[in-house]
Design a protein around this nucleic acid. Sequence first.
DNA 1: TTGATATCATTTGCATACGAATGAATTTGC
DNA 2: GCAAATTCATTCGTATGCAAATGATATCAA
Lengths: 158, 158
Amino acid sequence: MGRPAMSGEDNLLRLVEGEEPDENGYHLQDQVGFILRKAHQRHVAIFASHIADLTPPQFAALAKLYDIGETSQNQLGALIAMDAATVKGVIDRLKARGLVELSKHEVDKRRLLVNLTAEGREAIERLIPLARTITEETLAPLTAKEAATFLRLLAKLA
Amino acid sequence: MGRPAMSGEDNLLRLVEGEEPDENGYHLQDQVGFILRKAHQRHVAIFASHIADLTPPQFAALAKLYDIGETSQNQLGALIAMDAATVKGVIDRLKARGLVELSKHEVDKRRLLVNLTAEGREAIERLIPLARTITEETLAPLTAKEAATFLRLLAKLA
DNA sequence: TTGATATCATTTGCATACGAATGAATTTGC
DNA sequence: GCAAATTCATTCGTATGCAAATGATATCAA
């Protein structure tokens, strides 16, 4: 039998009657997916406040290329958790801004190689210190110990 | 030494993962934003595997309407962390599927009231048990104690 | 009362994000 | 060595997500 939506008044009534408060109720704000979405939103906003001319995915692409050097578009996508369709758009926009350059793989003609330009390298070197600040600000509501715990558990989930 | 500032969190996470602390390097996979994005992606994938015909934002809108009843579009957006432009698209699609209905506020002519239809109510009642499963599966990599800690810290960040 | 502000909703533009379909090139299996 | 399966990249369609501009309405304040 379908239970009708519960209002706060219902809960008050049950409290008055000495029942458990809303054992069966569903509260969106307690769901991990909803909080995860909000935490991600907050991080993106903090990112944008420090790095206005690049999005987090664009930054991720540059940072990974800086780390590992030239690689194929698909491989880069795998490393920064983007599917083929998404990474193409990101790389297209970075290319249009002269931060990466593309070339064909000599042997495997399917592959499209991506690499930083000199300008892209300068950009990522300039931005990495800001990224550390962004990480700190994102974690600022937590103590150092809590932040370490949180990152450990988050990594297990991701 | 012109060594760039390195947050303690970076090193702690790498120690947890058994990696050597690289004093100078910048590692994308240690940044909270990147892991947050991946964890969110994983959750969305789990959600889609259980609820194929609704997205997480659509589900959030229905669940919140089920919880609080009729409200204005903007107010609903505030409650489920969506800006006005985003919530409009979500509500438009739910309306097109007959899950919500819209009406004008009698007094304040600016407001657009949103409410569940009977079909929308049936849908959300049917889906809420699946949502609990989704939450469980998302948190499955953690022990019960870890999950509680994680949710507490995540809520502080969001 | 009226002029300035604020709020609600819409629209446009841009940037992820992903499923599905497609075509080209490579690798596998027999 | 060749057909089948796989991989790489692209394209299309759909759905968030947000900034900025706009128009309509409501509220505030002098």
